[in-house]
Design a protein around this nucleic acid. Structure first.
Lengths: 200, 200
DNA sequence: CTCCTTCCCTAACAAGTGTTTGGTAGATTA
DNA sequence: TAATCTACCAAACACTTGTTAGGGAAGGAG
């Protein structure tokens, strides 16, 4: 029955992609050999090509799946019509949830996105990055205009500051630790919004 | 005369290491071929081996030279006996100066440090990271104890927050831009210390 | 039982990798 | 002028890389 085997093979695909993502995240895409992935999956290198066209296809599928889910969450937040401060909060929280779920994918994205986006196949990475930047910048500027955020700072610098502080967390965050993604998001937000010094 | 040729060849070494560092930073260490480096330097791949033992030696020299200079600056700051808030400020400023000077090296360090430190040859990366963590953590804890920093935050989280926010800047910072490293450090510090919201 | 699909293995390929070896033009030294 | 040294080139080496082609065991379908 093609329906049953279809979902079964889809599950196997996802399984293989998950292990591939972990190795990519740990070693880097270029440093990862197809034989290592196969090893981790308990099979031989050639067998991977029954499921995937190429090593690059795996990377593509990992990244695009992650970005799809990311933007589903982001678009919901952006369409909710929140105030600047609440919007930033929701975006940060949403980001940490993605880190919690797609940890390896986030790490890969951060590491390889820059030089990958030059490749036509991965042009959607640049698109996403631009859309991302616009969403954050507009929210920040709106916040400055409404007096919620400080106006004495370079907005682009603030953007990069917030963006980086959130996403780099993927490099050390491990699911199932002492802090839930929501708790980490809460503390991060508190630092970004109010600073780490006492208010005297 | 060995003295003159000695410094001349030392200059050539530094020159080659600088171009190697740029390529490593742009493409990643593993994705960079020795032929690409040689090409960028205007010579053939084999010729590099007149100056260096191996590709790994180049990486080693780049990273250790960077760390040496970094710790020279850090140790000066840490020995100055500053208050917690001033110490953090000095450390951040110092870090941005390093990014300004050793941009490529910093980028390489961030990207490859994790999996390199497992290798015995690069064990000093792990040592440095530990020393780094201790310096920051102690300063932060001292600040909390003295009431300069907030006590309602997880100190380790604060550490990673500050550390990451500073060093990721290397991924987008380019020397000779609109902002000097000191100006960027000033604004970053202002955000980290006081937050991005208006104090109402 | 037979056929067929699924999923993997075995074995190899061509291209690209870091590295080595021997040579050589040109400057430096004696 | 002869000898030596410096900094590179030319060509190959052994090895790893992603990828492919053919085969075969297992199990469901007819």
């Amino acid at each position: 029955m093609t329906a049953i085997t279809g979902t079964a093979s889809a599950e196997r695909r996802a399984e293989l992609l998950a292990t591939a993502a972990e190795v990519f995240a740990a070693q880097g895409y270029n440093a990862t050999t197809v034989r290592r992935i196969a090893d981790e999956a308990g099979m031989l290198a050639g067998s991977l090509y029954y499921h995937f066209d190429s090593k690059e296809s795996m990377l593509d599928e990992i990244l695009s799946a992650f970005l799809d889910e990311l933007w589903t969450g982001y678009d919901t937040v952006l369409a909710a019509g929140l105030g600047p401060r609440e919007a930033i909060g929701a975006l940060v929280t949403q980001s940490f949830r993605q880190i919690d779920r797609h940890g390896p994918a986030v790490a890969i994205y951060q590491r390889e996105s820059r030089h990958l986006s030059a490749q036509p196949r991965f042009a959607y990475l640049a698109d996403s990055q631009l859309k991302f930047e616009n969403a954050w910048l507009r929210t920040l500027e709106r916040g400055v205009a409404e007096g919620a955020f400080r106006g004495d700072l370079d907005v682009r610098l603030v953007y990069r500051f917030v963006r980086d502080t959130v996403w780099v967390a993927a490099s050390w965050y491990r699911p199932g630790g002492t802090h839930s993604p929501e708790e980490i998001a809460r503390q991060y937000l508190s630092m970004v919004l109010a600073g780490i010094t006492t208010k005297t």
